[in-house]
Design a protein around this nucleic acid. Sequence first.
RNA 1: GCGGGCGUGGCGGAACUGGCAGACGCGCUGGACUUAGGAUCCAGUGGGGCAACCUGUGGAGGUUCGAAUCCUCUCGCCCGCACCA
Length: 869
Amino acid sequence: MEEAAGSTPASSTTCFTNKGGTAGINNPSLDRADFFIIYGGRVTVKKYEPALIEEKWQKVWETEDFYRSEIDHSKTKYYVLEMFPYPSGKLHMGHMRVYSIGDVLARFLRMRGYNVIHPMGWDAFGLPAENAAIEHNVNPARWTAQNIEHMKKQQNRLGVSYDWHREVNTSAPDYYRWSQWLFLLMYKRGLAYKKKASVNWCDHCVTVLANEQVEKGLCWRCSSVVEVRELEQWFLSITDYAERLLYDLEKLEDWPERVKVMQQNWIGRSEGAEITFKIKEFPGEEIRTFTTRPDTLFGVTYMVLAPEHPLVKRLVEGTENEQAVLEFVSEVKQATEIERTAEEVPKIGLWTGRHAVNPINGEEVPILVGNYVLMAYGTGAVMGVPAHDQRDFEFARKHDLPIRVVIQPEGENLTADSMTEAYVGEGKMINSGIFDGLDSLDGIGKVTGYLEEQGQGRFRVTYRLRDWLISRQRYWGAPIPIIYCEKCGPVPVPESELPVELPSEVELSGNRVPSLAHYDYFVNADCPVCSGPARRETDTMDTFICSSWYFLRFTSPDNEHAPFDSGEANYWMPVDQYIGGIEHAVLHLLYARFFTKVLYDAGMINAEEPFSRLLAQGMVYKDGAKMSKSKGNVVTPDEIVEQYGADTGRLFILFASPPEKDLDWNDQGVEGCHRFLRRTWRLLIECLGQFESGEGFSRAGESEAELERQVHATIKKVTHDIQDRFNFNTAISSIMELVNAAYAYRQAVDEKNQNHGVLKETLEKTVLLLAPFAPHLAEEAWQMLGNRESVHRQSWPQYNPEKLLVDETEVVIQVNGKVRGRITVPADSPEEELIEKARDNERISELLAGKEIVKIITVPGRLVNIVVR
RNA sequence: GCGGGCGUGGCGGAACUGGCAGACGCGCUGGACUUAGGAUCCAGUGGGGCAACCUGUGGAGGUUCGAAUCCUCUCGCCCGCACCA
């Protein structure tokens, strides 16, 4: 991995000496006396000039290798991670938001004494690189490398505190080598297999897609309509982990509810029975169906098969319906996912001419083929119970199929003729032979048990989740490390031969499909087993494979012997705080959980879940709409940094809204945050000038006590807001209040009487509190305050509870719950005294005159409520 | 249809376990300084009223001395899943 952070040789100058001077100091066009100011031998700018400060400190942090992280057992570790980006070329505001959130946490926690790991890398394989390569005739690797270089510069310009020694790039051979290794691990554990199946095909992207990557029948990337194709493809058995992926969601207490719910829905567990129906005309054959309502088995009046069901052909052979059914089937098969699932599509069914035998009562019911039955769910066959299933009801009414009531709701008398919709609730079983009179809830178990005894069914759990289709018919991905031998069949590439490298000499432009299959020198290989002639697999892996384990690679990015070092991984994992967009709720976040569990089972890590705490940050909008070129409402991080500096941008993006909510970008709001930083700067410059020109006074009156009290109250609030609530917006607002209070103090007290000690403390704490949010300004200010060590190496300030205590407090007096007065009393006044003083209050006594006091409620230090009649 | 979430000034948003609704910021109004102000500072800013005061957190009820906060009903919006048997 390239290490840009190391590219500048560490200088012998420490960051806090003044040798190099401030950037811009040699600019002769500036009027020096007016522009610069010197405190304690340090030069700085009079006016807040982010461009000068930010670049200077970014260089220092880089040269001094500031944010490097290593195992340190004396500290508590904390893993802060933002979802790594796809290197598309430039950062957008969503990136800026997620990095700002992560960086505040990382910086805050370092100051709190944690051993923080905060890495960054690149999700670098994928279609955009390949498409750009085709379009501009450049090599995807080069295109990607250029983008990474540029984006990394942009990230650094935001002042984000990454440990660049840990940078990973999923498209680098020393990374994808281990992606391939992990594929082989899956293969060895029986979790990777190849099979022919109906898969989602995107014609625009010229490749197949996993189920998770199809949104409402459209390709998640390009929104083209997805077709169904029969192809032989590689899958990972994520369904083997369905149960654990579902139940372990409960352990994730600090995940947003909506993400957990989405995963739950996606996994889609349902319990029921698998019931076997014999076929009257073919005694050797049977149809298995899945139902969640075995208690309604006596209500079955027909059976429907999915058009893709393997028995369909056989059943209709030789019947008079053969032609019609086959035509219908091919029609349905040709339809796209969208066409098949659209709301307006009527439910159509055709009779095959054959009959199924109900195992519970021997009844013969017609077998149909229906467009609404999905081959992919359950068994691809549905028993029709029109009386108790709404879909079946509609279908039966339309096709004149009989309806039979077998569940009678309490106190009602349903009849098939009078029903206008299916009854899906519980009730007493009727028309159900020996089960008559049974409660339907009990019937579920009883019927299943009976079928089990007869060998005609069993209890079964079905998932909506499908196995993960990982083959991609494209070039820019990690090749699947399998070799097909004429004699030995599919053979895994030996670990020692990894990585199976992507050929670099490729011709991607032109009209042909960009596939590895075109390159004989890649395809032709010797069989690892028999050394005979063989061919390599030419599909590459879904990029979601690469991002399913990168958080582990970060713990030992240079390891050459394994995907990661277990010792390092066990120290740093799990990720304590993961931050990213909600769009990955069931994609990346589900896959990463799956990989982690497999690695746990393989004994490679102790963590069973990768991310302890998840924050799904909201989107960034402008003028109520997503930023987009066509709407002309795009604001880029570059523009903001250039115009106001990174500190202002970070501050605004955190101040405008709590992190998990959507944020509406507002240029005037940015202006306001910039104004606040300038105001803070000016306070600093003015106070420092004052400190130098005169001695400090030790006046200690009410104003001083009040300012000091506010300093400590702010420390308390900011700490709480960041640590326990993730409410950076309120943390920032209370720092603003503190700065306002300092201004108010300086306004209220004559300059020659101001207490320098208290002012200095105020400035110091303000700077420390601001350090995670505005790291550059804080660093410069900290230096100006006469400190030699970086502000980012300071301990987070502690508040003194004693300083929070006030002598006097204002208490609200209510009469019948309405505020009617206020009194100022000693903070520790007992209740009786409060009441007495409240009643003595002129206004209150007027209101009380002639009234009967029913009750008095006091909340010490807060209010007195007098209830009168 | 199922599930999750949200409704507070002109705007973004505060309000801890039920205890002064509207912190902080934007915008707006007035003033100061100024050749100028789109810099800065000061004052004001939910609505109504000269004021006392009344009123106010989508709407209607309820619990309570007291409700943005708890309960019931209702309206509206956003998001996810959806012919899943």
